[in-house]
């Protein structure tokens, strides 16, 4: 009996210490969405259960290991106890109730994250190797590689993939949703904290999967509206070949593989490309003029640049004018 009392006290002490330790360790990132509240609520209860069960197993084990260790020279066996049906039923039935409670809480919490606001703003998302493109239908349908969101307003992302499976995850928002080719998946979120975050692709999608991260900016409603209106104006006003070309690169996600600042990604950078000498895989060199760029845009492996594997570029249908606009934009990158 004395053993049970000591172990009982130690279990409680250990459980409390474990919980306090885990709780104060700051396990989760900052809570930046309405949906994260119910997720973190359930997480906290999980930590309570984990702390208690951890103590419940580890303490009697450690206690036995020390107190009931075999003494030197003792070669006798321990007391013959085969089992106890009441105990076995107890530790089957009580955990069953705990588990069902957690399942119920899980369903409730899932329901909270899926709560629909009929006035939610729709944003279309296109995922592709290795970037995200956001389209704002409420603002004339301009494209952006940054996701700007107004604070405290629910948005629903209608997500599509043009190649493989990706997964939209913002750790601070908690929620994650795969983006699957051939269907539209939905991601509903209500940002609650102004700040900069990143969407990080959570489903392996190829060579540069690690870098499939785009900026998310959560801002005040008025700041957001100003930004969105400005983007819309730029889109409508800018009819120069260069700016049309830039819009094309965003819309088609070119910058997922071709950097515009000289960084080496999966494909050659566009920075300072125009007019430069390009070494090819077959050992020759070619000058990056209009003809070369047009050929490479339409048939990426016709002249393979040295050091790059012939992974095919996604198939684009671009008109001659659009190709010319793209080249005009590339010329500006110096």
């Amino acid at each position: 009996m004395r053993h049970f009392v000591v172990v009982g006290i130690l279990v409680i002490v250990m459980a409390v210490l474990t919980y306090v330790g885990l709780d104060s360790a700051g396990l989760m990132p900052v809570e930046a969405s309405a949906q994260s509240v119910s997720i973190d609520w359930l997480w906290n209860w999980q930590i309570v259960a984990i702390s208690f069960l951890f103590a419940l197993i580890v303490v009697p084990m450690a206690y036995s290991m020390v107190i009931f260790r075999r003494r030197k020279g003792d070669i006798t066996d321990a007391e013959h106890v085969e089992g106890n049906t009441t105990l076995e039923i107890t530790w089957t039935v009580i955990p069953l109730f705990i588990v069902l409670t957690f399942a119920y809480m899980g369903a409730y919490s899932l329901g909270e994250t899926r709560r629909v606001d009929p006035n939610a703003m729709v944003i279309k998302v296109k995922a592709q190797q290795f970037t995200w493109t956001f389209e704002y239908p409420e603002y004339g349908g301009f494209f952006s590689n940054e996701l700007h969101l107004p604070v405290d307003r629910q948005v629903v992302l209608k997500m599509e993939s043009s190649d493989v499976i990706h997964s939209f995850w913002v750790p601070e928002f908690r929620v994650k949703q795969d983006v699957v080719p051939g269907r539209v998946t939905e991601y509903r979120i209500t940002p609650t904290l102004i700040g900069s975050y990143k969407v990080r692709c959570a489903e392996i999608c190829g060579t540069s999967h690690s870098y499939m991260e785009n900026a998310i900016i959560v801002e005040d409603e008025s700041v957001f509206t100003a930004w969105a209106s400005e983007q819309e104006t730029i889109m409508l006003a800018s009819q120069t070949p260069e700016s049309l070309g830039k819009i094309l690169t965003v819309k088609n996600g070119c910058v997922g593989c071709h950097s515009i600042d000289g960084t080496q990604l999966t494909a050659p950078t566009w920075f300072g490309l125009y007019g430069s000498d390009v070494p090819l895989a077959d050992g020759t060199t070619v000058v990056a003029d209009d003809a070369y760029l047009a050929e490479s845009i339409l048939n990426s492996t016709a002249k393979l640049v040295e050091g790059f594997s012939p992974t095919t570029m996604p198939a684009y249908t671009l008109t001659d004018v659009e190709v010319a606009n793209l080249i005009a934009y590339i010329k500006t990158l110096k």
């Binding site: 997720i39 359930l42 997480w43 999980q46 899980g106 909270e112 994250t113 929620v175 949703q177 959570a202």
Partner: peptide
């Protein structure tokens, strides 16, 4: 539990 897994997955 689904909702916490949305973060952990």
């Amino acid at each position: 539990t689904v909702s916490t897994d949305l973060h952990l997955h």
